[in-house]
């Protein structure tokens, strides 16, 4: 693979991470903040995929003629990723539930205006 292209995936991961973080910092609405956080999260998927990638090798599924034990891409990072995709969805649901609660109690969903610590 071209050297430039092999760096592209890393660039994509860091770009997703930073643009998501930028969204979190700039956010003026809690729903926007939660979704920005999922963008940050998705950068880890790209990073894990690219770390486990080995040029030209197949997926670690030993059916359809792939000899068991023959070389394949890294199954560990894939396992980390697939559990995380599902778990992350529920964590985002929890964050959105908190958002609803905050909006109901504080009357606003702007993170700068929410002042929950008033005595």
């Amino acid at each position: 693979m071209e050297p430039a292209l092999s760096y592209a995936a890393y660039a994509a991961a860091i770009w997703l991470f930073l643009i998501g973080l930028y969204g979190v910092v700039k956010s003026r609405h809690l729903v926007n903040l939660c979704l920005s956080l999922t963008v940050v999260q998705s950068s880890t998927y790209v990073l894990l995929t690219i770390i486990g990638y080995r040029p030209g090798l197949p997926a670690p599924i030993f059916t359809d003629g792939l000899k068991p034990g023959s070389a394949a891409v890294d199954p560990i990072v894939q396992a980390l990723m697939l559990t995380d995709v599902v778990v992350e969805a529920t964590v985002v649901a929890l964050l959105l539930a908190i958002t609803i609660k905050v909006h109901r109690d504080a009357g606003t969903a702007d993170p700068d205006k929410v002042d929950m610590m008033r005595g």
């Binding site: 030993f62 059916t63 068991p68 034990g69």
Partner: peptide, 13 residues
């Protein structure tokens, strides 16, 4: 990758 099939008899690592 090398032990999944030989130790656990399954095909999805």
């Amino acid at each position: 990758i090398s032990e999944t099939f030989s130790q656990r008899n399954i095909t999805d690592a």
